[in-house]
Design a protein around this nucleic acid. Structure first.
Lengths: 236, 236
DNA sequence: AAGTGGTCTAGACCACATC
DNA sequence: ATGTGGTCTAGACCACTTG
C-alpha cells in the first residue's frame, strides 16, 4: 500500500499542488522559477522543468517564456454536468426519494477496474449496487466501486440514509471528476431493475472521481431514456 | 501556415501519430523503442523519451517497463460539453472532417419552436439540417433553427466551410447555453442519415443559446450511440 | 545477459521579455 | 544585462521482463 519512493519531479509537483489547493497560491500568482526550484530541491533543471511542464499540461499552471510561471485562473463558470446528487434532485422536485441497496460489500478488482482506479488487479475494493427511486419508481441504477485507501469504512454505511456520493464527499473533498455520457441498450438485468420496456435505450453516465491524487471511486449510473435527461446551463 | 521549425520531440510524435492514424500501426502493435528511435532520428534518449511519454499521456500509446511501447486501443471518444464544435473536435483528433448540407433556408416557426425561441408563432426563422462526418462516416446530424433577429445573414452561409456554431460565434458572443442530454431511439430518417443499425440508440444533445437576451438558436444534435460519447473533466 | 522503460544529472544554446 | 522558459545532449543508474 506504500509507494516505493516517489520520483523527484513528482515531489515538486505535489509541493506546488499543495500550495495551490490549500489556497496559499491564489489567482494568477507567480510560482517559483525553474532555477529557484533547482536550488530549493537540489535537483537538475530538467527535473524542475518536467514538474512545471506537466502541471501546465494538466491545467494548473500557465507559463510565459521570458516572464515566468503562474497559477492558472480557475474558470468560475458552472459546469455543464453539475455533479448532481440524485436524492437531492428528487427531493428538490418535491418528490419522495427512496433507495434499495442490493449489494454492499467487497470484491477483488478485475483488470479493467484496477486499471481505471490505478490500483493492483485483484486487490480488494468496495462494491455497492443501489437502485434509486422517485415516488417509488426506479430512476437510477448505481453500480459503484470504491477505493478502500480513500474510504476505509465505506462498507459500513447505510445507503438508504445517505447516498454514496454524499458519504464520499463527507470524508474527502474531491479534486477532479471525469464524466462520460453514453446512449446504450441495457442488459436485461439493468432493464428489469429500471422496469423498462423492451426496446428502450439507457442513458449511461460513467463517473470517476479523484481525491488527493488517487481515484476515489468509479461509478456507472444507468437511467431509463424515456424518464430521465441530463441538463446543464452555463455561461461561456 | 508554416511553423518556425518544430522541436525534435514533436517531429517524432508526428512521425508516430501518422503511422497510427494511417492505420499502418494497428491495434496493440509494438512501436519502436526509445533506443531505436535514438538511432533513427539521431537524437538523445531524453528526446525520444519525451515524445513517447507525451503520446502515452495523450492516450495514444501504452508503455510497459521491461517490455515495450504499444499502440493503445483507441476509442472514438468525444470531448467535453464545453467544446461545442464538432469540426474542431474531429480535426483535433487528426481526422478528416466533412459536412453535407441537406437543407438551408427559412420556414415559419411552429408553436413549440416559437415558444422555445421566445418569438411569435409563424414568424420566419432560418433552418439548417446538416450531417457532420468524420473520415466520411456520419457522426452527427444537426437540426438547427436560428433567430433572424440575431443572425440576419445565416441563410447565405456555406456550411461546408464553416460550421453553424462557428458562424454564430463569429457574429455575436453567446451569453448563455442550455444543454439537455437524452438517450432515445432514433426515427428511421435519423437512423438512415447516421447509417445506424436497427436497434441502436441515439445520444441526443439539445442545445439552446442566448445572445443579448434573445434566444439565438435551438439545435438538436443526434449521435449514434455506438460511435459517440460525451466526456468532460473538471475540478469542482 | 540483454533489452526495455523510468528517472536523473550537469551542462548547453536559443528566443524572448524586462529593466 | 539578466532572468525566464523551451529545447537538447550524452551520459548514467535503476527495476523490470524476457530469453
Amino acid at each position: 500500500m506504500s509507494k516505493k519512493t516517489s520520483p523527484l519531479y513528482m515531489k515538486i509537483k505535489n509541493h506546488i499542488l499543495q500550495h495551490i489547493e490549500s489556497g496559499a497560491w491564489q489567482g494568477s500568482m507567480r510560482v517559483p522559477s525553474e532555477n529557484e526550484l533547482v536550488k530549493k530541491f537540489k535537483v537538475s533543471r530538467m527535473t524542475t522543468n518536467r514538474a512545471l511542464r506537466e502541471l501546465t499540461d494538466e491545467g494548473y499552471l500557465v507559463r510565459l517564456a521570458g516572464v515566468g510561471t503562474f497559477v492558472a485562473d480557475l474558470k468560475a463558470q458552472s459546469h455543464p454536468l453539475e455533479i448532481h446528487n440524485i436524492a437531492k434532485e428528487i427531493i428538490e422536485r418535491g418528490h419522495e426519494y427512496s433507495a434499495q441497496v442490493l449489494t454492499c460489500g467487497t470484491l477483488k478488482a478485475s483488470a479493467q477496474q484496477a486499471f481505471k482506479m490505478n490500483i493492483e488487479e485483484g486487490s480488494e475494493v468496495f462494491h455497492s449496487f443501489i437502485i434509486h427511486k422517485e415516488q417509488n419508481i426506479p430512476i437510477q441504477v448505481e453500480d459503484r466501486f470504491v477505493n478502500p485507501a480513500v474510504a476505509p469504512h465505506y462498507g459500513d454505511q447505510d445507503f438508504t440514509e445517505i447516498t454514496p456520493y454524499e458519504y464520499l464527499m463527507s470524508i474527502a473533498p474531491l479534486q477532479k471528476v471525469e464524466h462520460v455520457v453514453k446512449a446504450i441498450m441495457p442488459s436485461t438485468e439493468i432493464r428489469d431493475f429500471l422496469k423498462m420496456g423492451q426496446s428502450e435505450p439507457c442513458l449511461l453516465l460513467e463517473r470517476r472521481t479523484w481525491t488527493k491524487g488517487n481515484v476515489a471511486s468509479i461509478a456507472q449510473l444507468y437511467h431509463p431514456g424515456n424518464r430521465y435527461e441530463l441538463s446543464g446551463r452555463f455561461k461561456p
